[in-house]
Amino acid sequence: MNITLLDSDTLAGTSLKPFQELGKFKSYPLTSTEQVITHSLGADVLITNKVVLNRETLAQLPAVKLICVAATGTNNVDLIAAKELGIAVANVAGYSTPSVVQHTFALITNLLGNTHRYINDCQQGQWQQSQMFCRLDYSFNEIAGKTLAIIGYGSLGKAVATVANAFGAHVILAERKNHPVRQGRTEFYQAIKSADIISVHCPLTDESRDLISAEELSMMKPCAILINTARGGIVNETDLAHALAENQIAAAGVDVLTKEPATDTNPLVSYQGHNLILTPHIAWASEESIIRLVKQISLNISAFSQGESRNRLV
């Protein structure tokens, strides 16, 4: 098979040997919109993380038999067009769960302990000026005893719940907004009103877009911390920046934005308050996570070559 990887830079230098062992392999660090056709010509298998493969593009690539998405989300591939054109599509799920969970709690513990502020003070020489052995300029709070609401209870949400319970938090599961409340769930608005920490782990859909906006932020406790390691667009960024500036909530940790890479005009990028930690969509990207991702993609390709269906969406 002729296998082409369109954006190898998104795999952070991880060994691509599993792909090389499957056929004639070619890779490009990145592929612009203008380069998609040129880079993809002659490929039986295309691997893409974020390169968009729309109907117009796919119609010009008659050799392509399989698209492997190097991610769980497949919004960059036109699945309907792929099906109509007889192109199989496979993704990878679950590979990044430990990585995302770890980053989620890195954000939570940093914000609860104001660790980022203390680190900055140490770098600025403030500890040396202290009148006592330590500095207690900012609050330091524990996860234990806090109510942590999880929005989105798939594999990630369940893994976050496990760790939160280990910390001694009281975990509640938010029901989908305006849906009947299932056993073991808490009505959506009640969940966000009662939570000290809210962690978002649902997919971005028409239903979840702007799921948390000004109205929801106004309902949260002034001490609440909001974490989004899911998808940009679930939390309204303008409304969140305003809520942080006005101290409507205590803090937020955000790893994803509506438009990525970030733009200077994004209200969270331009926000300078100490109660926001913004990271550049890295929650998924531990070295171990990417190694698992490459392995799973190679297994998807191998299965396809043997006429088997593995992680197929189309």
Rank of each mutant, 00 (worst) to 15 (best):
Y271S: 06
A245K: 12
S289G: 11
A251I: 02
D196Y: 04
H116E: 08
E34P: 01
F140K: 07
I225F: 03
R312E: 14
E237H: 06
A303S: 06
L204A: 03
S32W: 08
S40L: 01
G273E: 13
R231V: 07
Q248E: 09
I119D: 11
K24M: 14
L268I: 05
A303G: 03
T31V: 07
G157P: 02
A59L: 14
A144G: 12
E237S: 00
A90E: 06
N91S: 13
S208P: 02
K177I: 03
Q124R: 13
D121K: 12
I249E: 05
A166C: 13
H274S: 15
T74V: 11
E216Q: 14
G145P: 12
G23C: 06
V254A: 13
A43C: 04
G253D: 04
T186I: 08
Y28H: 14
D255R: 02
R209M: 09
L5G: 00
S286H: 09
S213G: 14
A164V: 09
D7K: 09
N91L: 08
N247D: 15
Y138D: 07
Q20L: 15
L58V: 03
A169D: 05
V269P: 00
A262N: 05
A283F: 09
T115P: 01
D137Q: 15
I87R: 04
L41R: 14
M219K: 12
E215F: 08
M132D: 09
S309F: 12
A169F: 06
S199A: 08
A174H: 04
P267R: 03
R209H: 12
L85H: 08
R231D: 07
L112V: 10
A252F: 04
E308Q: 15
G157L: 00
K193L: 05
Q296N: 12
A224Y: 03
I80R: 13
N300M: 07
T147P: 08
N275F: 10
A82F: 08
A262H: 00
L46A: 05
L226N: 00
L58E: 00
G273Y: 14
K259S: 14
I290K: 04
V77T: 07
S305N: 15
D44V: 04
T109K: 05
G42S: 11
T38L: 15
S218Q: 15
V92H: 04
D121I: 01
R185G: 06
G273L: 11
T238F: 10
L278K: 04
N120Q: 15
I108E: 00
L11H: 02
R231G: 11
A71F: 07
I301C: 11
A285C: 05
I172K: 02
E246G: 07
I108K: 00
P98Q: 01
V51D: 00
Q306G: 11
D137M: 13
G253V: 02
L58A: 05
A191T: 06
I234E: 01
T48N: 05
T186V: 10
A250S: 10
K26R: 15
G42R: 14
L11D: 09
S27D: 06
P280F: 07
A93V: 12
A81I: 05
Y271C: 06
V314E: 11
T97N: 13
Q306Y: 10
R182H: 11
Q183A: 14
V171M: 09
T31M: 07
N120G: 09
I197D: 01
N275K: 05
K221S: 11
